[in-house]
Structures are given as C-alpha cells and as structure tokens.
C-alpha cells in the first residue's frame, strides 16, 4: 500500500502545513520574483551582448567576462574595493571594539554616550555625505583647520588620488554603530566567572582582554567582520555624492564601476557580469559566516 510509504500525516498537521505555506507565500513570491529570478536572469544576460534592448540579444559566451578582465579600470575598481574593505575591517572594526569596550565600562551617563556614538549611523545618507565634502575641504574645512591648530598641515583628503580612499575609510568609521552595538552585546555576554578566575590567576586588565575577552568574542568578531566587508560593497551613496569615482579612477569601486557601465555607458551585459561576480563574492562570504559560526548561531537560536 502507498500509505505505508508516505509518513502518516494527520488532518490537523496537514492544515498547519497549509497555513505555513500560506504565511510564507509573500516572502516566497518576493524571493522568486525580486531575488532568485533576477540573479538567474543576470547570469544569463552576462553571456549576451546586451546593450539597451532585450529584443535581439546575441549569445556571446564568456566575451563579457573576457572584456571585463581585460579592462584595467575593472581591476582598479577591484583593487580600490579591496583597499576599502581592508581599511574598514582593520580600522573600523578595531575602532568599534574600542568604542564597545568604553561603553561597557560602568560609569554614569553611558546610555547617553551610546546614543551619541550611534547617531552618525542613522543619519548616514546624502545629507551627511554633503556635510563631509565640506569637512574635507582642504582650505576651509574644519578638519584641516583643527589639524593646523596642533601644527599639522592636513592632506587634501577626497580631492587627491592618494588620500581619497583613506578619507572614505575615516568617514566610514563614524558609522560603525551597528557593529559597535553587536560587539557591546558580545562583551556583556562573556561570563563574569571567567574574569574572576583570571583575576585569581593574577591576570591584569590587558591579560584579561587578550586571554578572556578576545577568544570569547571571536564568533561575534567574525560576524562583525563579515558585516563590514558586505557593507563595504554597498558604499554607493558616498561615492556618488562625494567623488563620482575620482579623482581619476582612484575611488572607482566595484559598485560604481557597475553603475557606470549599466546606467551611464549602457554596457548592460558587462554590468551584469560585474553584478554576478559581486553576487558570488557576497554569497561566499555569507556561506563562510554560517559555516564558521554555525555551532554558535544555532546554539543561541535554539535557546533564544
């Protein structure tokens, strides 16, 4: 009998299953129509000579990828993206960790400081990017003026090829709010007993930090690094508002390269190839996050 082969399911369980699929249906439709469909379409289009119209597409195999890899500006944009990714991970994450450690101190008024430190993150957008153009102004800006007061001649910041990427990294350090809060929550999750036993073993503050805090924090740190890498790929607003990839190509990052090819040069096939590469990189990063953090993630999720 067939009934033996399929797991017996009661009527109420069947109804529950129907409700489950009914409830996830909007998300599922969205996934197919707005994400999965486009991703597959993008893969297909990256093999065509797509310019503007979709009507007479020629299949050109890997030509777009070949053209892309032969374009020195593409490699410049990859290099710039890597530069910013590394800068944001090294400086942004350590700065966020410093802020989290500060906010973890038991001093009065800490909630106020937490809010202040988070503030630039929520307002990150066109309005604040415009302010930063002004802050970075080499002659009249507040940044170089302040540096001058302590005897330093400031660099030309976003207006020079050498300084534009460090400037963007510096600016991004003002919006480390989310990773700061995640690290703070991580710090507060370190069991107190560990510090107590470390103190009994005679460990000082620095020893406690390197031998207790950092190891206990490592999964959170890993997650935070992944987030900052992913968000480094999204820095479109600053580039569009502040530098447009310049001076020269010195702040041309992958998302800007994609934008220029898609919507300015109308080389949509090439843009699709870039987008596909970005997609693969981001999926690999997400995969790495869950692979490394799996035990920790599910443990917390089950108990949570």
């Amino acid at each position: 009998m067939f009934r033996r082969l399929t797991r017996p399911i009661s009527a109420s369980a069947k109804r529950e299953e129907r409700i489950f699929y009914l409830f996830i249906l909007p998300w599922l439709i969205g996934l197919v129509v707005f994400s999965a469909g486009p991703v597959l379409g993008m893969l297909g289009l990256s093999f065509t000579d797509w310019r503007i119209s979709l009507d007479d597409l020629q299949f050109i195999g890997l030509d777009n990828y070949a053209k892309l890899f032969a374009d020195p500006i593409f490699w410049t944009s990859v290099g710039n993206t890597l530069y910013i990714v590394v800068g944001r991970v090294v400086f942004g994450v350590s700065f966020a960790l410093l802020l989290a450690v500060l906010l973890n101190q038991k001093v009065p008024g800490i909630a106020f400081f937490r809010a202040v430190y988070y503030l630039p993150t929520v307002t990150a957008g066109v309005a604040v990017a415009l302010v930063w153009i002004w802050i970075f102004n080499p002659r009249l800006g507040i940044l170089n003026y302040s540096l001058k007061q302590i005897g330093i001649t400031g660099p030309p910041w976003i207006f020079s090829k050498d300084w534009v990427k460090p400037s963007l990294i510096l600016m991004s350090m003002f919006s480390v709010g989310p990773i700061m809060i995640i690290l703070l929550a991580g710090l507060q999750g370190v069991p107190k007993e560990l510090y107590e036993s470390a103190a009994i073993d005679g460990a000082g503050n620095w020893k406690k930090f390197t031998n207790v805090t950092l190891p206990m924090l490592s999964p959170v740190l890993f997650f935070v690094i992944i987030i900052s890498v992913v968000s480094s790929f999204q820095n479109f607003t600053e580039i569009r508002v502040m530098t447009e990839g310049g001076p020269g190509e010195s702040s041309n990052v992958m998302i800007w390269y994609l934008w220029e090819n898609a919507f300015i040069f109308l080389q949509l096939g090439i843009a699709a190839a870039v987008a596909w590469i970005m997609f693969v990189v981001l999926m690999v990063l997400t995969g790495a996050q869950f692979w490394v953090g799996r035990r920790w993630v599910y443990y917390e999720a089950d108990s949570g």
Binding site: F34, S35, P38, Q234, L258, M278
Partner: peptide
C-alpha cells in the same frame, strides 16, 4: 546579508 545593490541590474530590467 545579500545587499540589494548586487541585484539592481536585473531588477531594473
């Protein structure tokens, strides 16, 4: 974690 920016070309189409 997938940012929308990566999907923007096909979504535009």
């Amino acid at each position: 974690l997938l940012p929308n920016e990566a999907l923007v070309v096909p979504q535009y189409v």
